[in-house]
Design a binder for these strands. Structure first.
Lengths: 146, 146
DNA sequence: TATTTATTGAGAAAGATTATCATTCTCAAT
DNA sequence: ATTGAGAATGATAATCTTTCTCAATAAATA
């Protein structure tokens, strides 16, 4: 039984064939998926799956903390499974290609909690995004600025 | 002459009455403004200002680095003047009220540059968001979990 | 002031997400 | 296995934000 299915059973939330098809897609996938990718992959398992159900289920899974939604500037929204074993991570966004690289920085997380506390807040979540461009060594015609 | 106007002159970009009206709104405003707030305030100066022009001008100012666009989850996009004197800052978002608090953390910026470099990136920008709820002392009926 | 080009406003269009609603499905209790 | 109540679904309409189109206008330069 999948981790998603387990959570649904524990919470007494209905398990439907639509949801099982989506669970399978999201649990198998590596990295970030757009809504259209999720829909088309899940339709291979459940031919009649509707777009509205995809959105509803993604919202439900986000609310349960089983997946995360990412919205980077000028990109389609993507969804990603929250790993039970791996640590929370953040993202480097390549401003040229849109490529996403993940990194962890638990020591930063601690600093952010302290900042939140200093302003009278209990931190519940946080997000760090780095925008940059890949450093290319041995580039034929360097563009200066380095 | 406003800082925005100065930049436009230096770069040889046309100064129109639409743009001047928007400059005035954005330079006077404290904090974050939505597109509708910007439009309605600017219409007091330029009665015929159109929505498309607001979007076009905001995009232009973002590209010039004179303002920043912020898109927090489940909230309308907002725009904020980039100060020439104050440091780059980040945001704490109150998950209950949506209130935004700003904080600076230059020491974190340095750490992020190093992380970027470790992954082969030259950092060009970054974003830190803390989500949390206000700690209320002396609350009549605490909700546990503390 | 004339000329050239960029900018504008209005509305259409696009894209993403949510709402509506009649039908279908799930699941606990029979 | 069957049933019944409520939850979930798919199709599509509706909404919301942002961009596009294009004829008319305004800005900058000569």
């Amino acid at each position: 039984m999948s981790a998603f299915e387990k959570t649904f059973r524990e919470r007494g939330i209905s398990l439907t064939s639509s949801r099982l098809a989506l669970f399978s897609v999201l649990e198998k996938a590596r990295g970030h998926l757009t809504v259209d990718e999720i829909l088309s992959r899940a339709r291979k398992k459940d031919r009649t799956l509707g777009l509205a159900t995809v959105y509803r289920t993604l919202n439900l899974l986000c609310a349960l903390g089983l997946i995360e939604k990412h919205e980077f500037p000028n990109m389609e929204a993507t969804y990603e499974r929250v790993s039970e074993t791996e640590h929370h991570h953040h993202h480097i966004i390549d401003v040229r290609s849109g490529a996403i690289t993940e990194f962890s920085a638990d020591e930063l997380d601690v600093v952010l909690e302290k900042i939140a506390a200093a302003y009278g807040y209990k931190m519940q979540g946080h997000k760090i995004e780095i925008y940059g461009e890949k450093i290319i060594l041995d580039e034929a015609s360097p563009k200066g600025k380095v």
